[in-house]
C-alpha cells in the first residue's frame, strides 16, 4: 500500500496507576493499552474491536490526547501529536473529532442544540460569524433533523436524534478523521440501522475517515474496511474485513466470531466457548495474553509473547500458532469476493 497514511500510532502505551492504602502509593499498573501500533489510511473505515477492558476506548482517547499516553507516539499526517504543546493541541483537535456512545451524557443539557453544534466553529473560528447559524442549520438537515431544532434543548430529543446532534457537532469543524467510540451501541435496533446508514452516507459526502471502535462484530463487519482485534491492551490481529471474516488466524478472533449470535435459525457455526473470564489488566497473563482462555494453547504460549507478524499480505497476527483454530463457515462477504 503506497497510499499516504492519515493516522499512525507507534508503540502506543497507556498504563493507569493503581493506588492503594492511606498514602495512595502506586501499587500496580492497569495496562490498558500496551504497545499498540497501527495505521489508518485516508478514506477508509478502520475498526477496533474487542471486549470490555481490552483498551479500545482508552486507545481512542489517547489518540486525541484526551488521555496522555504513557509512551509511544501518534502521528497525524506525519505530525507527532504527542509532542504538541497544549495550545497547539487545542488547535490540532480540529482535525479529529469524536462521536460518543451515550447520547444522553454526551450533550450539555443546558445548551441549545445550535450552540452545541456551533461551539467548535466558534473555538476554531470556522466560517464567518454571521454564516455559522446557516452552516449549523444546513448540518442539522444533513444529519436528518429539522432545521428548527436549532433553538431547542437536548432533552426534547430521543436517543437516536441526540446521536444525530452529536454527529453534527463532530462534522461542524470539518475534521479529517472521526473517532466513533461505540457510537451506535446504546441505540435500539431500528434506530441503530438509521445511524449506521447515516454515518456511511456522510462518509462519502464529506470524504471522511472513520476510526470505528465497537464491541459489536456485526456492526464492525458492516462498516469497516480494515479491522484490528484487541485483547487485554494488545493487538491480536489486523487485517481487511474480507480476510478477517473468511480466514481469521488468531484463535481469539475465531472464538469471538463464533460467539456472535446471528438472527437466522439455520445458521450453524462451530461455537467455540471460551472458558472463564477476561483476566485483570493489572496482572495480565505472561506470554501470550490470551493463553489462559485459548482452546489451542501450548507450552510456548505461556512464556513467549508472540509478535505481530504479517502472516500473509495485509494480514497481521500475534500468535505462535496462527490458523490452528478455524471457523467452520467462512462468512462470505461479497458475491465476487476473491480473497
Amino acid at each position: 500500500m503506497n497510499e499516504s497514511v492519515l493516522l499512525k500510532t507507534k508503540h502506543l502505551t497507556k498504563f493507569f496507576p493503581v493506588k492503594t492504602g492511606v498514602f495512595r502509593r502506586t501499587s500496580g499498573w492497569v495496562k490498558a493499552v500496551d504497545d499498540v501500533s497501527f495505521q489508518v489510511y485516508p478514506g477508509e473505515t478502520f475498526g477496533i474491536v474487542g471486549e470490555s477492558g481490552c483498551g479500545k476506548s482508552t486507545l481512542g482517547m489517547t489518540i486525541l490526547r484526551l488521555i496522555e499516553p504513557t509512551s509511544g507516539s501518534v502521528f497525524f499526517e506525519d505530525r507527532d501529536v504527542t509532542t504538541l504543546s497544549s495550545s497547539q493541541l487545542l488547535r490540532f483537535r480540529k482535525n479529529i473529532q469524536m462521536i460518543f456512545q451515550d447520547p444522553f451524557s454526551s450533550l450539555n443539557p443546558r445548551m441549545r442544540v445550535g450552540s452545541i453544534i456551533g461551539e467548535g466553529m466558534t473555538v476554531h473560528g470556522v466560517g464567518a460569524r454571521s454564516n455559522r447559524e446557516f452552516i449549523v442549520r444546513t448540518l442539522l438537515e444533513k444529519v436528518g433533523l429539522q432545521a428548527d431544532s436549532f433553538d431547542r434543548y437536548p432533552h426534547e430529543f430521543s436517543g437516536g436524534q441526540r446521536q444525530r446532534i452529536g454527529i453534527a457537532r463532530a462534522l461542524a469543524i470539518s475534521p479529517k478523521l472521526i473517532i466513533a467510540d461505540e457510537a451506535v451501541s446504546a441505540l435500539d435496533v431500528s434506530i441503530r440501522s438509521q445511524i449506521i446508514n447515516l454515518m456511511a452516507d456522510l462518509k462519502t459526502e464529506f470524504q471522511l475517515t472513520y476510526l470505528f471502535i465497537s464491541h459489536d462484530l456485526s456492526v464492525v463487519k458492516h462498516l469497516c474496511d480494515r479491522i484490528m482485534v484487541m485483547y487485554l491492551g494488545k493487538t491480536m490481529e489486523i487485517t481487511t474485513r474480507e480476510i478477517l471474516f473468511c480466514r481469521p488466524l488468531h484463535p481469539y478472533t475465531v472464538s469471538l466470531i463464533s460467539a456472535v449470535p446471528v438472527p437466522d435459525p439455520d445458521y450453524h457455526i462451530n461455537r467455540i466457548l471460551l472458558l472463564g473470564d477476561v483476566p485483570s489488566p493489572v496482572h495480565p497473563p505472561s506470554g501470550c495474553r490470551f493463553h489462559t482462555r485459548c482452546p489451542v494453547t501450548r507450552k510456548k504460549c505461556e512464556t513467549d509473547e508472540p509478535l505481530l507478524i504479517e502472516q500473509e499480505p495485509f494480514h497481521f497476527v500475534a500468535c505462535h500458532y496462527p490458523g490452528t483454530l478455524a471457523i467452520s463457515v467462512p462468512l462470505i462477504l461479497t458475491s465476487d469476493s476473491t480473497l
Partner: peptide, 24 residues
C-alpha cells in the same frame, strides 16, 4: 420484516441496511 432487515448481519453481505423510518 423491517426489524430483521435493519440488523447488520455477520453471515451475509448487505450493501446497505434497510431501516424503519421515524421512531417509536
Amino acid at each position: 420484516i423491517g426489524l430483521l432487515r435493519s440488523i447488520p448481519r455477520l453471515d451475509i453481505h448487505q450493501e446497505k441496511l434497510s431501516s424503519i423510518p421515524g421512531m417509536v
